[in-house]
Design a binder for these strands. Structure first.
Lengths: 325, 325
DNA sequence: GTGAAAGCGCTAACAA
DNA sequence: TTGTTAGCGCTTTCAC
């Protein structure tokens, strides 16, 4: 691999001049520019970003740490992030924690060690990861889920209102006994959606905690079906678990929506092709990503200043799975 | 941010000793180890990976460049890659080219500049990106799609056989006029699946090219429906396009499988929940990722040596969408 | 407008 | 076993 000195020698100039040409921030004699560019081409020179980052003490990389790469919600959000990042001159490094706090800590440590310019994170709930981020003073934006005891820029949807609306929708359709399958305790989306559900329930709440994954939703639904107090409808606090629940119901020949109503949180790409089509509380994923990225750009530009929290609205998409009559 | 010298001063040792303690490759006096670790903790020291990478002239990062983060095929494959990478001490940096050759080139350039340890790529078809990779001598493994004129380690499924089987399956079910919706010319999966289809077709092939995305599948199906020579079945060369085609058929009230049979390539997570459930040629995604990662580990260990190509079998999952009777 | 030289933070020869 | 020292490749003063 040729270095900047090889290029300098080839062009008959100093390394400083090559650097100036390549970074284009200072004016350089046109002749020299031409010679340098020719030398770059001849040698196939590629600047060493590691050296540049070290010298500049900064990088143009963002770590985007999401908790499940298999969840369409996150992949759609990432698209929004990427579009803004690219425009602002940053590259996005995607990290998949798989809802595993240990993996999440590893990725946070890597982001800090690699001196990344900023972090966007949907925390899997690791207090350690959050602590490391907050202590490091690296610019951080939390998405989807609040960072545990973290005073950072945050973009979320109105989980409580969305969950309440979903529950009221089921009750309004005529279901009597609405259960809730939510996510792990301590994950803000799980707790807030549960609260929204509970606030809309007139009677005793019926709650099962699972892990925000498809199999978890399946198992939770299974437990509800064989439990002592079988519900006639269920609000499921995320999309993958809703799919799992739906599969469980199909396998047990429980008619949806006749015998069991179902509403999920987070849309899925093919909610309308599934039968019965899935009623969901949809989130503005792409916009959420864009907003988070914009906040990060601003935070990098001005690291001090009070963090802001943006709450985006969620919207009920009524489809077949909640249509009792 | 404290440096290794701050730690050294605090612990009353040299920077070299701190480095040795932290990297644990040389034996160090236990007393010193304790002092160093204490100093590290007190100062909240975190090694600067950028400096280390520069000094060592290598990194422990892999760039995994996929062409569509919204495609479950790729996300499942990434899981397999990650598991092997982690075990081998590498971190995975995921890059989404969005089927856009320009983006792909950008990511390849970044991977090279950042001195990444290796690249796993499902090429969006950019000859330029392939050229840059091959010239650089960075370890590369191609997945899913062959790298344009690239002699590199490759993991693919048997696209031609899978497509042939899908087509024969439709013909065997009693469909007469089977069309094919495939991907962009020059992308090996698109061309090979087309070839497999054509080899199984007794009569004149009926082919539409699209872009491997859902909307493309929708539009292609639309064109087939209104074309002069309407088919009674269609083999769709990837999963997202199959979903698009299905949606198009649903919106046009074309009965599937009665009026139109459908087989897709690549499974989708909810193929069995969609109605009609989707017949697909499924690929061993997770295993594909693991295999690619293992090849990359080997290639990094021994950069010379002939590249190998691994062909994994694809498997037809017959469901409702191809059941004529 | 250009070049010489210092130094980003770390690791690895080499000496002691 | 430990410390001294050089240098990875680049950018950025500082002098000219």
């Amino acid at each position: 691999m040729p270095t900047i000195y090889d290029v300098a020698r080839q062009a008959g100039v100093s390394a400083a001049t090559v650097s100036r040409v390549l970074n284009g921030r200072q004016s350089v004699d046109p002749d020299m520019v031409a010679r340098v560019l020719a030398a770059v081409r001849e040698l196939g020179y590629r600047p060493n970003a590691v050296a540049r980052n070290l010298r500049r003490s900064r990088t143009t990389l963002w770590a985007v740490i999401i908790s499940d790469i298999g969840n369409p919600f996150f992949t759609a959000t990432v698209r929004g992030i990427e579009d803004v990042a690219q425009q602002a001159g940053y590259s996005v490094v995607l990290c998949n924690s798989d809802e595993n706090p240990a993996k999440e800590e590893t990725y946070v440590a890597a982001a800090l060690s690699e001196q990344m310019a900023g972090v966007i994170i949907a925390s899997a709930g690791s207090g350690k990861a959050a602590k490391a981020l907050l202590e490091s003073s690296i610019p951080v934006v939390a998405i989807d889920r609040k960072l545990p005891r973290g005073e950072v820029d945050t973009v979320v949807v109105d989980n409580e209102a969305g969950a309440r609306e979903a529950t009221e929708h089921l009750l309004g359709a005529g279901y009597r006994r609405v259960a809730c399958i939510t996510g792990p305790e301590g994950v803000s989306t799980a707790d807030l959606r549960l609260r929204g559900y509970a606030s809309a329930m007139p009677g005793e709440p019926l709650v099962v905690r699972a892990d925000f994954r498809e199999q978890g939703g399946y198992d939770a639904m299974s437990a509800l079906l064989s439990g002592p107090d079988r519900p006639d409808a269920v609000f499921v606090a995320n999309n993958l678990m809703a799919v799992g629940a739906l599969r469980c119901l199909a396998e047990h020949d429980v008619n949806v929506p006749g015998e069991m109503g179902l509403v999920g949180f987070d849309d899925i790409p093919w909610a309308d092709l599934v039968r019965p089509s899935l009623t969901t509380v949809a989130q503005p994923t792409y916009e959420l990503g864009r907003m988070a990225a914009r906040l990060l750009v601003d935070r990098i530009a001005s690291p001090s200043g009070k963090p802001s929290t943006v709450v985006l609205p969620a919207e009920l998409h009524a489809r077949q799975s909640s249509r009792l009559t």
